[in-house]
Design a protein around this nucleic acid. Structure first.
Lengths: 215, 215, 215, 215
DNA sequence: TATGAATGAGCGTTCATTCAT
DNA sequence: GATGAATGAACGCTCATTCAT
């Protein structure tokens, strides 16, 4: 029998996989709360409501637990941030409105708790986990910039933008949003008012289109 | 003999202060290498070539050691980054050239190993050391943005820029430089070619002036 | 097979309790040997033939270890010392013989190594562990004096003793035995000969009956 | 020049000896407050208002510091407790009054803070400092018992007491006072009312004279 | 398979002690 | 002689990891 069973049954391996995912999710929550070194496996086991050795039966050691938890969390964040610029694939008539929507969605995804935690943990543990760059950063900015650069290139080919280096332009657009946002959210430790967010998004679009627009 | 001797114990308490600074510098290096939690005091002592208790005679505990080391490092970085935009106070005839110079200087200061480490550690440890915002962020971006916003406002008043919100514009300028730079330097873990740097700086200036220039 | 097995893990949680008691016993031995502050947990672990963390899995910290070890030891000593004066409840014809027996039993229980150590540690650590008064002193003298005072009161009511304050009289009887004994055993650090012990017991009874007897 | 100078002058060695005594007194206070192991030399230096190495120039190490401080304190306590029974050398007409006075003085000297501290420290550190028995116990009880035994013997020879073993009788007298006192002062941690003290002293004399008196 | 119990290794911190001044 | 500064050694405690069940 090959069809995967989604209900947590004892037959098949779906139940085991569910538990693994529950462990990874719990691990990410605890790591986000305490950081890697200060999070202890006991806490993670408690958060996941399993016994400590159960974790070791699913993951090799604490390092692997961290890597996998980060990768899983990155996958989640990646999807929403990439979705934010998806509307630019077919922007319709009003280009400014399309970029405005993208900017606000992107901003929302950046203000997520998970997003901040992911960024923070990556920064913190990069020295010990250099491979986080490939698993997390790709998820955080890499894919986003790539997708966006693609859309920008298409728009440039279509004559609706005038862009020399689409990748650089995409990086600038992302930076115009995340940069001021990080500055005023104090790296995720302060609430950002909706007004300020709207202002940042609007200014980013204005600046971006002033530089690359054709109208 | 009037020249200050570095010999410990002579010239008042200079020797003690020297050692304190050596400890803080060593601490920053080790923290940068391993992160806060993974760095152990023994390593820092070895790096500073002192015994562990000597550290505790200068600083209260590991937390204080971290705070002071960060503050000292921030002080160093702050000066060079603030100096980068100093040329914009009297930009002369060629505004683009002035911003170009500022961009390159700023970029240089951001590509420093210290700067990356400072940024990474601040981001990583903000939840546990909220006061880093005041000591480090002020030094990293706060002062820089403030100075730059002042220059932008002056230029706007003088009619050479057209800026609604000088602070936001300054944030954008800084973001247009540091954002793409961080994306492609991978948070300071990858070398950035001089060409790429020049390209980023140039594009930042172009975008910024396209949005806010008056020519 | 119904006999309880000492094999750890079998028979419910008996093994764990056994280990806890072994740890407490070992702790008391080490504390008795070195005093509280000079005893280190490593030594106790070695004495109990367990690893250090095992101790911390049974007891919260060194203080708790001390408290529990003292309480357990006190429980043991309490029983024998209280039993010593039990014969005075029904002294029979020869009152002097009954007191003599009680005196010798009491003396034996006071000359125990455990008893000395308990006394010494309690005295030494009372300022830091004030609750020892309730857990240990009650076991050492409190219960003994109370029981004895009760017997003395009964004998007084029965006309075989003439006692104004039974509690004070009981304290005196106990002091007439333990006082000289502590003086010449040098707080448990010197051997006391059987002759000297008999002499002290006999003299205590003589003095006590001279003061409170009715013959 | 041979006459000792009592004023702390630079000539002669009296100043040095004064400082040594100040250090020992300070050490005893700190040891009494914290116990041997928890008292650190730095605290003692602060209490004595000297620098740490100064202490090491007067005493070899912390152990010696403890021994000497204990010996000095013992000397002080010994004098007052021995003086308490001095009146029994020439008791005058009223023997009961003379013993009553001695009992009260002895009791006062036992209720001293120094006396309790001395006893507590001796108990606590006997395992590590066995020689405390000779320096302290001699001062605490030994000399007292010896002196008292002498007086008792004299009184026995004079026909005013009927005593077989003067040393044991002396031990009993001391025990009749200190025993109940320690029981109800809870080893120096509880205040004892003047009434209770008087009661104990009076009962001790009564019991003692009932046993050994000739009236 | 999942778990309670046990452990080896390590960390932050303190302190007695010693130089150089 | 007295002191500020420095250190080697130790201790309490925690945690990732592994057996035995």
């Amino acid at each position: 029998m090959t069809a995967p069973k989604t209900h947590p049954g004892r037959t098949g391996s779906r139940g085991r996989i569910d538990k693994r995912e529950a462990i990874l999710a719990a691990a990410f929550r605890v790591f986000a709360r305490k950081g890697f070194a200060n999070a202890c496996v006991k806490d993670i086991a408690a958060e996941a409501k399993v016994a400590k050795p159960t974790i070791y039966s699913h993951l090799d050691d604490k390092d692997a637990l961290f890597r996998e938890a980060m990768a899983a969390a990155a996958e989640g964040v990646s999807a929403t941030s990439a979705a934010a610029v998806e509307g630019l694939r077919h922007p319709g008539e009003d280009l400014e409105a399309a970029f405005g929507t993208a900017a606000r969605l992107l901003l929302d995804s950046c203000l997520t708790e998970s997003s901040h935690a992911l960024r923070r943990l990556t920064y913190a543990e990069l020295p010990r986990f250099p491979e986080l760059l490939d698993t997390v950063r790709g998820a955080l900015n890499g894919r986003l910039v790539d997708d966006l650069a693609g859309h920008v290139a298409m728009l440039s080919v279509g004559g609706r933008l005038r862009v020399g280096d689409p990748v650089l332009a995409a990086e600038q657009f992302v930076s115009l949003i995340t940069g001021p946002m990080e500055i005023c959210s104090a790296m995720g430790t302060r609430e950002v008012t909706a007004e300020k967010a709207a202002e940042v998004a609007s200014a980013a679009v204005t600046t971006f289109l002033a530089a690359y627009g054709t109208d």
